[in-house]
Every structure is written in structure tokens, then in C-alpha cells.
């Protein structure tokens, strides 16, 4: 863990090691320091990917690290959508990465549908309209 930690800093000084905390991420056990967030503790272990975009499966990790973007959201102790950058680690916390979700039915013709009732009415009188 220490190779990703900034142990000595020329201005901020030595990193004061605090209590070690053990938590679980995707079934594996990791340790961090008290005061770490889930995001910082995982990054200290070199873990970047925290979830996938639910529809495309594209990987995501921390982006803003200050609670604005929700890109780092994970499931913590069975609660979904928790920001890992805003959540301090706790002993035996169970963290699970975000997975691909089934995609609801999507209309592939959405662009061709009428936008307003007026458009819908105009569409009714088109001769090639299959719905007439």
C-alpha cells in the first residue's frame, strides 16, 4: 500500500499513520487508514475502476473526488449509489463495484415520432403513414 502513499512531503511533513482499518471491496480484503475515504483507500492500492456505466458497460473511476459527479458511486453495506469519495472507510465495511444493468426497452424510431399533437395530426393525413 505504501508505494502509492505520499509518506514525506516537503511542506506538509510526514504522513502520520493512524489506525488501520480493514474493509472488503468486491470480495477481497483491503486496509486503509482512519480518515481515508473508500476512494482514497482503494486508489492507495492502485484500484482505479469503481463501476461501469450501467447501460454501456464502459469503465469508470473517480472523476471529481469532491462529491459532485457521482462517477465513483458504489454499493456500500447493500446501499446502492453511495459516493466512494465522500464515504469514510469503516471496519468490515462491504463495498461492491457498480455493474452492468439490464437495459429497458428503447424505441429505435424515437426520432421519427411526432413531438406535438399538431404534428401528430398532420402525420395522420400523410398517405404513406402506416398508421392511417
Amino acid at each position: 500500500m505504501s508505494n502509492h502513499r505520499i509518506m514525506d512531503h516537503p511542506v506538509l511533513g510526514k504522513l502520520e499513520k493512524t489506525e488501520e482499518i480493514t474493509f472488503i471491496f468486491d470480495g477481497k480484503s483491503y486496509t486503509g487508514f482512519k480518515g481515508d475515504t473508500v476512494a482514497s483507500a482503494l486508489l492507495a492500492h492502485g484500484i482505479r475502476q469503481l463501476r461501469v456505466q450501467e447501460e454501456s458497460g464502459n469503465p469508470r473511476g473517480i472523476y471529481c473526488n469532491i462529491g459532485h459527479c457521482f462517477e465513483c458511486r458504489v454499493t456500500i453495506n447493500h446501499v446502492e449509489g453511495v459516493r466512494s469519495c465522500m464515504t469514510p472507510i469503516e471496519h468490515n465495511m462491504v463495498v461492491e463495484s457498480g455493474r452492468l444493468q439490464p437495459v429497458p426497452f428503447k424505441s429505435t424510431e424515437a426520432d421519427k415520432l411526432p413531438r406535438t399533437y399538431a404534428e401528430f395530426e398532420r402525420g395522420l393525413h400523410k398517405e404513406d403513414d402506416p398508421h392511417v
Binding site: 502509492h4 502513499r5 505520499i6 509518506m7 512531503h9 506538509l12 504522513l15 480518515g35 481515508d36 475515504t37 482514497s40 486508489l43 492507495a44 473511476g61 473517480i62 472523476y63 471529481c64 473526488n65 469532491i66 459527479c69 469519495c85
Partner: peptide, 15 residues
């Protein structure tokens, strides 16, 4: 990541 994310990770979390 955003540059602010890197700042917090570096100076606050020391990672």
C-alpha cells in the same frame, strides 16, 4: 480526473 480531484487526493488523503 479533474485537477481538483488530484489536489484533494494528494494533499488531503496523501495518495
Amino acid at each position: 480526473m479533474s485537477i481538483g480531484a488530484a489536489q484533494v487526493m494528494t494533499n488531503v488523503h496523501r495518495v
